[in-house]
Design a protein around this nucleic acid. Sequence first.
DNA 1: AAACGTAATTATGAATTCATAATTCAGTCA
DNA 2: TGACTGAATTATGAATTCATAATTACGTTT
Lengths: 227, 227
Amino acid sequence: MNFRQSINRPTLHEELVERLRSLIVEDMLKPGEKVPEKELCETFSVSRTPLREALKVLASEGLVTLQANRGARVTDVTREEIKKTFVILARLEQLVGELASVNLSEVGRARIEERHADMVAAFKARGRTTYFQANQDIHNALLEGAGNDILDTHHRMLESRVRRARFMVNLSEERWAQAISEHEDMMVKLRNRDATGLGQVMKTHMENKLAAYMKVLEAEDRESEEP
Amino acid sequence: MNFRQSINRPTLHEELVERLRSLIVEDMLKPGEKVPEKELCETFSVSRTPLREALKVLASEGLVTLQANRGARVTDVTREEIKKTFVILARLEQLVGELASVNLSEVGRARIEERHADMVAAFKARGRTTYFQANQDIHNALLEGAGNDILDTHHRMLESRVRRARFMVNLSEERWAQAISEHEDMMVKLRNRDATGLGQVMKTHMENKLAAYMKVLEAEDRESEEP
DNA sequence: AAACGTAATTATGAATTCATAATTCAGTCA
DNA sequence: TGACTGAATTATGAATTCATAATTACGTTT
């Protein structure tokens, strides 16, 4: 039995890392903005020490940028960096696919199929929130099913940097339909335990996400040029 | 002109992260050992605050493990974790190869060829230290040539966890020769700007490193079983 | 002597304090 | 009016202090 869990009272800075990460990923703290140390200390009612420790950790993840004597700012992820991150994520996803094909239990696979059905239903009903949730669940389940916690850690780090980007991508109806079709493909490959196949699809899936995102951005660029 | 450099006095905790990382990677602080907070404060003559900040960062990189109210220990990387790390590294190396093939300048490539020649010479003279250095330089140059700094960051993080492992691997004469031959292959692919090819070789190179490492460990296991 | 319990010591997490760098803002001069 | 100067204010990095958890040392009991 595992007693760790029950005793485990996470330390303040750990909790703060989580909370701050959420604030950034959920876009409550916007890119480029200064991280209001004092204010956050008050809202979380902690002293500066653990908060600053948490900022150091987030900085090492790249979510926040520190400047000596000028405090922390939410990293403004440039388009170039988003590209770079997606390129890496695509490879990690490929690996996730290959590993999950081999390591995922039948029970786990069945659970993913269920969530997949939910996701398709959400698509048909155009329920974006439900869709996003199911989608997220599937990816997390695959990641967990891969059985490589270090892969998991790095995947999460990279993903948090481009989370905002991923949100806006699926807005296009065309891309949405394409994503669903890619997911269908993933389920087929998973059913057949086709490691290489699933890896390939997941890699492509991610690459298409990037392509769709860049397309959205370019459209925005054109708009702002000639209003 | 860039004045940043001249003004740039890195903060204490940043410097400490570097120093501590070195201590761990160079095996001055051994796995499983407690990180002697007080002692290190004295040797670096800093207070506990920046040192502990540095430890938090190293913990997020996985180099150190924190336990609430029990301080920090150098992470004892298990065999399983080394495997998991190598698997990821192999994929990242593959990506490095593909990107470097495309992005590396001719000048950069020439410089790598030079270092490659040094490495081969070191191999022939059985100069391990020189060999390791040249090898490291080549990999760093490729990583830099890939032109993806985020890839670089994550690669370094993962590599630092298995640094010790990589050191002992090349000890076998057989593996050493194989590594040289793989490097020759890499140079050919790089000369031809064969992105897929270089990626493949580099992936395999890393996978072979893992295999060799596991072989060494298994041999050690057998020894300890029947002395 | 070994096992237990308890007091003393030490180490740790977090708050507070302190020195200094950065920023703001009022006042001056062109 | 607007750019510049320098004092006042604020924010930041780092040292110190404080409360508490963990560890050690020691004495007691069997």
